[in-house]
Design a protein around this nucleic acid. Structure first.
Length: 287
DNA sequence: TGTATACCGGGCGGAAGGAC
DNA sequence: GTCCTTCCGCCCGGTATACA
């Protein structure tokens, strides 16, 4: 019979587990480095709904901290509203590890349906070890896991964004990636008035944040650009032009805020579209 | 069925380090 | 030197599981 011990770090599979870190966690005033560490650990155990129930000891081991420290940080995160903690009991009333619901969406709304998250690389057996693995590959036992990503694309995402190259060699998007001259020419001709510099930076950040890998990064960027433009009634035209001397930190904060806004829009659309479970939603506004 | 062991979350007290 | 914060170790009460 499986036990909660399956939540314990397993060196044999640890390299294949992944987690999601929403950008807004980074800018949350009540989340410090310790909080982020715990959130990161929790996210690696979370299922598609952002729910997980690793024991405090498991988290403590993973984070090289004492269990009491983890307990304190969990309390802070709960107070901050970033996570919801729900005590669990067995059928006979026994105390089990708590259920943690990660608030992946900024704001006070319900936990976002992560089925609507942008697609990451497909979870294949040849997935690189440092890339995110699909929920079904995570170690935590969850009979309620809604899906297994193996064998199908990420739900709720238009087909263009699904990287489905089981035999092709994909590459990570480097931090200094820039579209080719041909890509820029195409983009300027296709979408005049768009701050391409900002969009490129946002694209790179999204890819790095989620571990997206592409066989053709340029084509992927063009695809993102198309969908981003289509997703917004108002195209991605930024009120202030990119200033070459602008602080990169400030620029990233602005990009993060933009991403949060995009996700908030995604969540709003999801709440309005009951067909989420069918995976029929196109997420042009994702990142 | 009873016992031993393991695991769980919660809480307390003390040590260590930094700030004033 | 004092105060505060952070962290750790330990204990407690409770249940689950394995085994004789």
């Amino acid at each position: 019979m499986p036990t909660l011990n399956t939540n314990q770090p397993n060196t044999g599979q640890e390299t294949t587990r992944w987690g999601r870190i929403p950008a807004w966690w980074l800018s949350h005033p009540d989340i410090d480095a310790d909080g982020l560490a715990v959130l990161a650990a929790l996210s690696t155990y979370a299922n598609a709904r952002g729910e997980c129930w690793p024991s405090q000891a498991t988290l403590a081991t993973a984070l090289k901290r004492s269990r009491s420290t983890v307990n304190r940080i969990l309390g802070q995160l709960a107070d901050a509203g970033v996570i919801e903690v729900e005590p669990r009991k067995s059928a006979t009333g026994g105390r089990l590890s708590c259920l943690y619901r990660l608030r992946l969406e900024a704001g006070s709304g319900p936990i976002v349906n992560v089925q609507a998250m942008p697609v990451r690389q497909r979870d294949t057996d040849v997935a690189v070890v440092d890339s995110p693995c699909a929920a079904a590959r995570q170690e935590q036992l969850d009979s309620n896991k809604p899906d297994s990503l193996a064998g199908r694309g990420r739900e709720g995402v238009s087909a263009e964004r699904v990287e489905d190259h089981p035999t092709g060699e994909t590459q990570a998007v480097p931090a200094d990636w820039m579209p080719s001259a041909a890509d820029l020419t195409w983009a300027r001709a296709k979408h005049t008035g768009i701050d391409l510099d900002r969009h490129v930076e946002g694209f790179v950040l999204r890819c790095q944040a989620h571990g997206y890998r592409y066989r053709d990064v340029g084509a992927a960027w063009r695809s993102w650009l198309l969908q981003d433009v289509q997703a917004h009634k108002a195209p991605l035209v930024f009120g202030t032009p990119t200033v070459s001397g602008m602080s990169r930190t400030a620029d990233k904060i602005a990009a993060s805020r933009q991403q949060v806004a995009i996700w908030a829009g995604v969540a709003d659309r999801l709440r309005q579209q009951p067909s989420v479970e069918t995976g029929a939603i196109s997420l042009g506004g994702g990142w």
